[in-house]
Write a protein that binds this DNA or RNA. Structure first.
Lengths: 156, 156
DNA sequence: GCCATTTAGTTCAAGCTTGAAATATTCATG
DNA sequence: CATGAATATTTCAAGCTTGAACTAAATGGC
């Protein structure tokens, strides 16, 4: 075992496990609150919000596979959520010229308007729930997590 | 607006939103890996692991409502997972003397043995995924999150 | 051009998750 | 002790999630 290896010691391992449990708890608390607020104020769900949030960052739209890639959920998962959002007139599937297999998913005008309203509240809710973090702290920890997620992803 | 209020400024709000998105991404990355490992190596799922982990901390067992309280998931949710774990012989429902409504859920010997094997690997996986954090960093951030989750919970 | 492989997307079964409604039991209080 | 409120749990419908199987279309040798 290399001298620079930091994994494997019992104390560090326990500390990391505790950190993971805290991350898990925090994200569950926040998600539960978001879920409830989205339901009460917009009659929607977190997965629907996530899909619309992803699409809102791409005016040209996203292919189904790109969408599931961005959200890091399975392929088949997105199909159902997009189906329902499409039924509600919040997005459309646009055929891709030159590839009859694929389609671009794009928010409609209604979808963009609706998401804008939701996103504004969403940011406010997050701001309140994470009020305990100063802007500086938030940036530091965010950067720290970014590195971790990147390292982890690149390993796979 | 009070001079001590930290929410409401645009920059802080954006920093907190970014932090939340990083927390979300990190926990999804870690959960996806755990899910896959649990499936491949133990033919089980994360919710099943979570239930067994909660029960493993209480030799006397937990009532269904306590279990859903600890896990912070809905009441009805636990019923199904416990049903399946019971079918697999990993836990039992024990009647509570003096209250015919309730039952205590307890791991069986097989359940404890099986969980011990899973927990050992689980800790190793977490240690590897969070290897980028030193023990000190992990403790600091864990404490930070603990405070946040507590503040948030107490508000509700 | 033909056929194997790859890529895009949907469908499917099984399990997870929620919130609400239903059932059963206990508790409180008059 | 009767009965209405509270508590413990299950059931249910709808939606989410996964991984695998499937369909359809594009691509790349040969």
């Amino acid at each position: 075992m290399s001298l620079t290896t930091t994994t494997g010691t019992d104390a560090a391992s326990k500390a990391r496990l505790r950190l993971w449990l805290r991350i898990l708890k925090a994200s569950r608390v926040v998600e539960a609150e978001l879920r409830e607020n989205l339901r009460n104020e917009f009659a929607t769900t977190l997965p629907r919000f996530d899909v619309m949030a992803a699409l809102s960052r791409f005016d040209e739209g996203l292919k189904m596979s790109e969408l599931s890639g961005v959200l890091r959920v399975s392929n088949g998962n997105v199909t159902g959520i997009v189906d329902r959002l499409q039924d509600d007139g919040l997005l459309v599937r646009v055929p891709v010229p030159g590839d009859r297999r694929a389609s671009l998913v794009r928010l409609t005008k209604r979808g963009r308007d609706e998401f804008a309203r939701q996103a504004e509240q969403h940011e406010r809710w997050i701001d309140e729930m994470l009020a305990d973090f100063t802007a500086g702290e938030a940036s530091d920890i965010a950067a720290r997590f970014d590195r971790m997620a990147t390292l982890q992803r690149d390993k796979t």
